[in-house]
Structures are given as structure tokens and as C-alpha cells.
Design a protein around this nucleic acid. Structure first.
Lengths: 257, 257
DNA sequence: ATAAATCCTCACGCAGCTGGAGGTTCAACA
DNA sequence: TGTTGAACCTCCAGCTGCGTGAGGATTTAT
């Protein structure tokens, strides 16, 4: 007769699970306590404590209520459960990776905002997108770029990445400011010079050379761009290409002449 | 005239966002492309690519569609965004912690299942609950138990914890097997002896002694039990207590006599 | 006896989609 | 030009895991 009985309110406050949730668990057949024959009030017993404990624990492991419903009825678990557990673990690990990337993205963005004050949203989003699709981009690069470039990029530290991001932001800002000028405008040409210098500095001149010689099919380039669209419009990109072309010609003439 | 236009199908496959989702984003006013005046077909343009990029990136940072809706319209982001970002970061970190605990729980459970073959589900769930409420339990213990016990527990390695779990499982199994016997049955008494020995071994005899002398109010004990209910029924616990009492008396008689 | 607390059963709402029904429109081919 | 078939349209329904509130019954305390 020492069987302890609980009203739903007491059961709720003891377990920390809300009354509504208990109602819901009853409704879906997950935890159905005895009911008072006339009033209909739920009467939870000691066993229900353990069932709820199971439910909470399985939820904690990441199972949904449907699966939990099936598992709750098992009096014991054996190795064949390990398979499902393994599956879940993989799913959780994937999610964890994603979360870590998000955290990284937030940290980077915070730093950038602190140091730059204000950043064009398209450019910022492009940077975030880069973090997001980092893995795919890496895979793409490993398939299409020479190993020395990959190695060099792998070696970049977090600070160097940040510096690159900042450079990128500033250049993007300037580009959008200068876009209305003709490509042979001295301001534009100076901009191009800085742009190329920064690139050289980051990658090293020989790597840039190598990159220029690599021949990647157009379809593959498109794939890459689909992963993470550039923050510039087609017109802006065209304009930048023309400006670089012009700069190159001028430099050639200077060195040759 | 070089403006690229996309049908919803093309836009979908290029961006990786499903047609249905694009419909939804249109519906909630998040991304509303031009529509063909007669057919009503959606026509996405280059700018929409960037807007979607923003949406994806902001989602990645953890914002909900409602906030994203407001943010998408901003042409640039400034430091005052850092506050919201910080908030999000904290939320993400909390979630990450929870996920890591889940992963730890799964790993432990997998190991236990592999090594034990089959485990009583109530016992297993109790162990999972332990991981889940580890933090609260630690806090409770720091408030109610002497420091040397805490220190000793802190020093336990992952393997020692695993060993303890296994012991726990085996003892629980035995307890449930022996429960029908009277407490003075030799089998039961031998079980108690092993049980106490294992406890001594894990904590050290002097710590057990200290623990026995610590006087924790009943209400606090209840709090602790509510965090993580024991896998045994009240009757089983009573039975175990009686069995231990009996064992103690016998030992006293032996040493005194 | 009555007031306050607790309980009951509907039933709608949320986010962020996904899916199906039933009907246009478009592109290509005969 | 007619005819497929794919792609598109709108509208409505459903999913998870509850939260919230209405409106009424029951229990508990005074």
C-alpha cells in the first residue's frame, strides 16, 4: 500500500515537465497514467516516474517522441540499439560541426564589424557564405588547383584570414565607389595596383603566376561560383576585369619600352 | 540589357533552395521576385541572387526569418549589430554545450552496451540522466558535501567513470535478481559485501567515512533525488538498506565478539 | 457553504517548411 | 497547328513539440 500517487500538478513540479506537456504525452500515448474513474483526473504512480525519466533521457539523446514511444516499452536495451545510437551520433556530429561553423562566422563578423565600423552587407554575406561552404570549396580546390596553392592556403592563420577579409572589405568598398569612373582613370588604376599588390602579398608572386597558368574548364568555374556568389554584379566584375587588363597593358609598355 | 533572369526552377537548382521554399519566402514577403504580368510566373533577377545569399547567410548565423526580413533591407551592417550577434553567440554556445553532453552520453552508452551486452533500461536511463544533470549535481554537491569528496570525484578519469558505470549496472542487475530473497540470505549478504567493497574502492575508505558523517537535511536530499531519480523502486531501496544494516550488525558482532 | 486552487477537455497558434490537388502556361516536336 | 509533358501557378493541409487560453468540473481549505 506504500505506492506513492501523484496528481498531475505534483508530478509536474517534481519532474520539471509542464502540465501541458504531460497532457500531450498522455494524448499521444507516450505516458498514460491511471485516471480517476469519475473525475477523470490523472493519477501518476512511481512507475510513471521512471517512464518519464526514460522519456527525458531519450529526448536528451536526440530521439523524437515517435521513436521514444517505441523505445519506452523496452525493458532493457541491448547492442542492437548501438546501431541507432551510432546513427544519431553521426547526425549530432554533423549538426555540431555546423554550429561550430556558425560560431566561427559570428566571431569573425563581430571582429570585422568592430574593426571596420560599417560593412557593405553583400560583402559581409559573401564572407559568411565562404565560411559556410568552406568544405565544399576546399574539395573543389583540391580537385582543380595545384597542390602548392592548397598548401599555402592551408597554412594561413586566423589572423591572416582576418587581414584578408579586411582587405577584401576595403577593396569592395573602393570598387563600389570607383565603379562610375572609366577604367583608365588614374584613381582606378591606382586602385588596381593596390589590389594586385595585396593579392601578391597574400599568395606570393609565384603562386599567383601558377594560378594564372592553371586552366580550369568554364563549367567547373561556374560550379564554384554557384557555391558562393560574388558580392559584385556582372557589370562590376566586367569593369574590374577591364581595369586590370588596362593596367597590365600599361605595365607591359613601361617595362618593354 | 545583360540582366540575367531566372525561372523559379533554375533559380532553385542554382541556389540549392527548393521551389517550395522559394514560394514560401515569396509568401511571407522575404524574397518577392518580379512576376510575369499574365502568367504569374516568378522571374528572379541577379539582385535576387544576392538577397537569397543574404537570407541563407543570416539563417546560418541563427536568425529567424522574421528578423532576417528586417535585416535583408539594410544595405550595410554596422557595429550595433554586434550586440545581437553576441546574444546569438551565447545562445549557440549553450546549445553547443548541450549537444556535447548528448554526444558524451551517447558515447558512454554505446561503450556500455558493447561491453555489457544488455542493460536494464531504467539503469541506463539513470546514467544518462546523470550526465544530463551533471552540472546541477555538481553544484548541489559543492554546497552540501565536504571539499575532499568533491576533489576526489573531480579527479576521476573517463575510464574510472566507465568502470563505475559498469559496476553500477552489474550491481543493479544483481539487486533485481536477489530482491525476492530475505535480507539475511547468504547470497544477499555476499552481494552487500561486494557492493560496499566497490564503493570503498572507488571513493577510498576514509571518504566513505566522511560521507557517512556528513549530515544533509532531508529536504536537500530530496532535491538531489528529484534531479535524477534512482532506478530502483522505493521497496528495492528499503530492501537494500535493510540488507546493509543487517550486514553491518553481523560485522560488528564479528569484530566485537 | 463558499472561495480558491487545481483539474478537465477542446481547440487554435507557432516556425519553417513539405506535400498534394487541381488547374495554367510554356517549349518542343509532329 | 495540335499535342504532349514539363514546369509553373494557387490553395489547403500537415508536420513537431509543445504554449496558451476558454469554459467548465472537481477538489481542498477555510
Amino acid at each position: 500500500m506504500g505506492k506513492k500517487k501523484f496528481s498531475i500538478g505534483e508530478f509536474s513540479s517534481r519532474s520539471g515537465v509542464s502540465v501541458r506537456t504531460l497532457h500531450y504525452y498522455d494524448e499521444i500515448g507516450l505516458l498514460q497514467p491511471e485516471k480517476h474513474p469519475t473525475s477523470g483526473h490523472r493519477i501518476y504512480c512511481e512507475e510513471d516516474v521512471h517512464i518519464l525519466q526514460k522519456i527525458i533521457s531519450l529526448k536528451f539523446l536526440g530521439y523524437n517522441l515517435d521513436k521514444i514511444k517505441k523505445m519506452v516499452k523496452e525493458p532493457s536495451f541491448s547492442i542492437d540499439l548501438a546501431d541507432t545510437l551510432n546513427l544519431h551520433m553521426k547526425a549530432l556530429e554533423t549538426e555540431k560541426e555546423k554550429m561550430e561553423k556558425s560560431l566561427l562566422a559570428i566571431r569573425r563578423v563581430t571582429t570585422l564589424l568592430e574593426e571596420e565600423g560599417e560593412v557593405d552587407s553583400t560583402v559581409l554575406m559573401s564572407l559568411i557564405g565562404n565560411i559556410q561552404t568552406e568544405k565544399e570549396q576546399m574539395e573543389w580546390m583540391e580537385n582543380h588547383l595545384p597542390q602548392n596553392v592548397i598548401d599555402e592556403l592551408d597554412n594561413k592563420s586566423e589572423e591572416e584570414r582576418l587581414a584578408l577579409d579586411k582587405t577584401y572589405i576595403r577593396l569592395a568598398k573602393q570598387l563600389k565607389e570607383l565603379y562610375h569612373l572609366p577604367v583608365d582613370d588614374p584613381k582606378v588604376q591606382q586602385f588596381v595596383e593596390v589590389y594586385l599588390q595585396e593579392t601578391f602579398q597574400f599568395l606570393g608572386e609565384d603562386l599567383v603566376q601558377t594560378l594564372g597558368e592553371v586552366d580550369v574548364p568554364e563549367t567547373e568555374i561556374e560550379k564554384f561560383e554557384q557555391m558562393n556568389p560574388s558580392p559584385f554584379s556582372k557589370e562590376e566584375e566586367e569593369w574590374l576585369n577591364l581595369a586590370i587588363e588596362y593596367y597590365m597593358k600599361q605595365t607591359e609598355m613601361l617595362t618593354e619600352g
